[in-house]
């Protein structure tokens, strides 16, 4: 099989906390990531598509079409924002990179469906989000359907860390 991956970057801030816990409990659970004023990262988003290579053009997808889709669905809304307050789709979610990856995958999938209504021979395959050089998270779009709901801020659930 053949896949194409393009990388994009956005910078954003966040704070990890559960509203059902005290500041001290949040600090115990999330450590520095729960510092009250938040902090930021330069995220690196990799978007992978899989498909047939068009025999005439040699392309699976035009790079400029993929760029536009990622920009419209994600980058212009996430860049230089606070993930706790500025992103409607992140509302009530703990902005862990797991949750951010899931939300981005869903946004891209929704945008992809509108793009590929013209019968594109390729599909969205994977979304990878690098929070720092040391932390990376990836979801295959095949697995997205089976994925449980992202962790909400208000559920106060017991997290295993």
């Amino acid at each position: 099989m053949t896949t194409l991956t393009a990388r994009y970057r956005f910078s954003a801030s966040h704070r990890l906390y559960l509203s059902s816990l005290s500041d001290e409990e949040n600090s115990q659970l999330f450590g520095k990531c729960s510092n009250p004023y938040g902090h930021g990262h330069d995220y690196v988003l990799s978007v992978t598509v899989r498909g047939e290579v068009d025999p005439q053009t040699g392309l699976m997808i035009r790079k400029q079409d993929l760029d536009r889709l990622v920009d419209q669905a994600v980058l212009r809304n996430f860049s230089h924002r606070n993930l706790n307050v500025d992103i409607a789709e992140m509302d009530e979610l703990v902005p862990t990179t797991e949750n951010v990856t899931l939300v981005i995958a869903r946004l891209l999938q929704a945008a992809w469906r509108s793009l590929s209504s013209e019968g594109s021979g390729c599909r969205l395959w994977a979304v990878h989000l690098q929070e720092t050089d040391r932390n990376g998270f990836e979801i295959r779009l095949n697995d997205l359907r089976r994925q449980t709901t992202p962790i909400s801020i208000n559920e106060g659930m017991v997290l295993h860390v």
Partner: peptide, 10 residues
């Protein structure tokens, strides 16, 4: 650095 293609054994 920001664009790559994988060909993977089926």
């Amino acid at each position: 650095a920001d664009l790559y293609v994988d060909v993977i054994a089926d």
